[in-house]
Amino acid sequence: IRAHRAGLPIPAPEGRSLAPTFTGGEIDREALFWEHEGNRALRVGRWKLVARGPGRRWELYDLPADRGEQHDLALDQPERVAAMAATWERWAQRTHALPWPWRPAWGEPVASSARRFDLRGGDSLNDGEAPDIVQREIVATVEFTHAGGSTGVLVAHGGNQLGYALYVRGGHLEGAVRMTGEQIWATDPAPLAAGAHTAVLRWVRPGRVTVELDGREVARTEVGGLLEEQPVDGLDVGRDTGGAVGRYNAPAAY
């Protein structure tokens, strides 16, 4: 077994043999550790600490009482969270799971916590600047002037896996959302008249997507809930520079 590579020592592999469990024995171990593309977890006895991505906060679950991990107890037990997180950090440093080498940097937010954005046509926010929309209701309002025959994207956040978009397609106002790749849309059946308009896309609990035009709801659809993950692509106004959220060919500038 090689002990060095490129002049550096090769760390001994971590882990414990499962053989004792085959004969009714137990495994002497500190904890179970996970790390994959910034997603991380730690289990100590009945408790599991888990987080999605390098910028997400820790969640805490009592597995015997909550096998489906539906009731996050992190806010109720901050001391346990801190102790378990420190254990995970020590393991990650020791095994070179850290430092995290890719964007976003380890511990940095994966999106903006701001609740309101005032943007103009042509503006773009990258994935770190765009709003955090995980399990959050969305209201996107666009003021625009429509010329007959114009098509394209009014606003889009996300890509062909996750996100939402409001756009004009075939002379009709349409809103679309993506949930793990599935594309769902709602279209105003009436042609969009030329002139100045205000369009709104709402994505609210428990999973309703509506499209409004000049203060009147013109289309709606039901989806399975809100987004469970943050889109990788950012937010664009007047085009879509990432993967297409809706039924158009990006960038589909308006």
Rank of each mutant, 00 (worst) to 15 (best):
A97M: 07
V232H: 13
R46A: 15
G38L: 04
A41W: 03
H71W: 10
Y248I: 02
I10D: 03
W185D: 11
G225R: 11
G170L: 08
T180L: 12
G107E: 04
V50M: 06
A199P: 11
D28A: 14
V237I: 15
Q135R: 15
A190E: 13
T221M: 12
R216I: 12
Y254D: 00
N249D: 12
G224H: 07
G148R: 14
T151P: 00
V232M: 08
G225P: 04
P131C: 09
A219E: 02
V223K: 08
V110I: 12
G68W: 08
P131R: 05
G45L: 08
A244D: 02
P101R: 05
V223R: 05
R29D: 13
V209H: 03
G122Y: 02
G15F: 13
G215C: 07
D123C: 10
R90A: 15
T87C: 09
T241P: 00
G215E: 07
A86C: 04
V209K: 11
P9E: 09
A244T: 03
E14H: 13
H197S: 11
P109M: 11
V139Y: 08
P11E: 08
V139A: 14
W106Q: 14
R67I: 05
S113C: 03
A193H: 01
G224R: 14
G107C: 04
S124V: 05
Q93C: 01
R116M: 13
A12R: 13
